[in-house]
Simulated assay, not measured.
Amino acid sequence: MMASPKSNSEVHKRLFLYSHPRTRSNLFMRLLETHPQMVAKQYPFMFAFQAGPEAQWSEEKRALRIQSSHMSVEEADKKSYQAGLDEMEELLAKANEEGKICIIKEHTVHLFESEFVNAKISSPRHGVPRPVIVDRRLDVTNSGEADVPLPVPNPTLLPDRLLASMSPILIIRHPIFAYTSYIRAASIFGGTGIDSEFPLMATYRWQRIIYDLYRDYYDKTDPEGRKHWPIVIDGDKLVEDTKGQMEKFCALTGIDETQIQYSWNASNEPIEDVYRAFVGTIKESTGVIKTPKSSEALNVEEYVEKWTEEFDETVAQRLKEAVEASIEDYEYLFKASI
């Protein structure tokens, strides 16, 4: 586990949270959003990945996603990767003008093209063309600003210079809990745990790829100054010791932790079905909801019995296989967590 960092005088103004479904990322974002200097944008590319004109899902799943969002096909066609990048860059520019800190959150797999994703999983899956994205540099306020070189391969759809300019945060959670929670939530748009998209959402391969990418980059450019980066948050540690985790995070990013609130008012805004499945709990909460922690080591075989009862034997086996295949990557990242 990473040693506790000392306070960092540098304030990191451009943060990117590389998230994974059901890792407590909504809680982490909710905490940061209470900070008066923070502006946030969540999922600039998720809808493009799932239901936009360049969707990386099958046409059947795209149709289900559009239907569950109560959106017309014409409206969905406007949710392109280009639109997502433009909105992200515009917010970065706005935050810079206002002297604020900007955090962008996206599930890591949504940042990869289909060909790259399909090469990393064993399950057969349809391929689609790479999305066409032009970097309009809408976040660049100084026309003479030079691009930051990225001396490592960039497997994402983000421009090299944007990837290099962001301070990376990854969030993980034990796969037993993350993957089970994903299946429950994904059922709202037809996810079953045995479909072709499950392997994309039940792996920490994407998180490790991003971690190794940035570590390689920092080792080549600033090994001492960035020795604690990327920052890795473990979702269960965040619930168990919320303030302690946020203090460590803020020490690394230069953010004033005393400005973060640990309780808030519940949202009264109506939430559509898909979003309720994924963010309903945090939207309706007034603070961190503690969950009982087991002092015993997690045994996947015990959970297979529970999964068989809750879902069925086939789903239970898929969950077991996914958990066992993810343990090495999870433990690798957990050792780097704050």
Rank of each mutant, 00 (worst) to 15 (best):
264 W>V: 06
272 E>S: 09
88 M>W: 05
33 E>T: 14
54 E>R: 01
228 H>W: 09
58 S>M: 01
118 N>S: 00
237 K>Y: 10
301 E>I: 10
114 S>P: 00
57 W>A: 05
299 N>K: 14
182 Y>T: 13
73 V>Q: 09
330 Y>Q: 10
40 A>R: 02
115 E>R: 02
182 Y>H: 14
185 A>D: 08
20 H>N: 14
47 F>Q: 08
4 S>Q: 13
239 V>K: 13
128 V>W: 00
204 Y>I: 10
134 V>H: 10
205 R>I: 13
74 E>W: 01
33 E>F: 02
218 Y>S: 06
102 C>V: 15
253 T>H: 08
74 E>T: 08
245 Q>N: 15
161 R>W: 02
169 I>C: 03
60 E>D: 10
30 R>D: 05
258 T>W: 03
188 I>G: 05
199 P>M: 14
21 P>E: 05
162 L>D: 01
280 G>Y: 03
331 E>F: 11
255 I>F: 06
326 S>N: 06
320 K>L: 03
1 M>A: 14
76 A>M: 02
21 P>H: 15
51 A>R: 03
281 T>F: 02
199 P>N: 14
177 F>I: 00
271 I>Q: 06
70 H>T: 07
36 P>W: 11
132 V>H: 10
158 L>R: 03
24 R>I: 00
200 L>Y: 15
175 P>K: 08
269 E>H: 07
158 L>H: 03
208 R>C: 06
305 E>K: 15
271 I>A: 05
278 F>C: 06
294 S>D: 13
3 A>I: 11
227 K>R: 15
303 Y>S: 09
12 H>D: 04
99 G>W: 11
293 K>R: 14
102 C>E: 05
36 P>M: 12
23 T>C: 15
72 S>F: 02
296 E>W: 02
234 D>Q: 08
234 D>S: 07
135 D>C: 07
231 I>R: 08
74 E>I: 04
242 T>N: 10
148 V>Y: 00
157 L>N: 04
52 G>D: 02
277 A>K: 04
337 S>V: 01
313 E>Y: 09
195 D>Y: 09
257 E>H: 12
27 L>N: 09
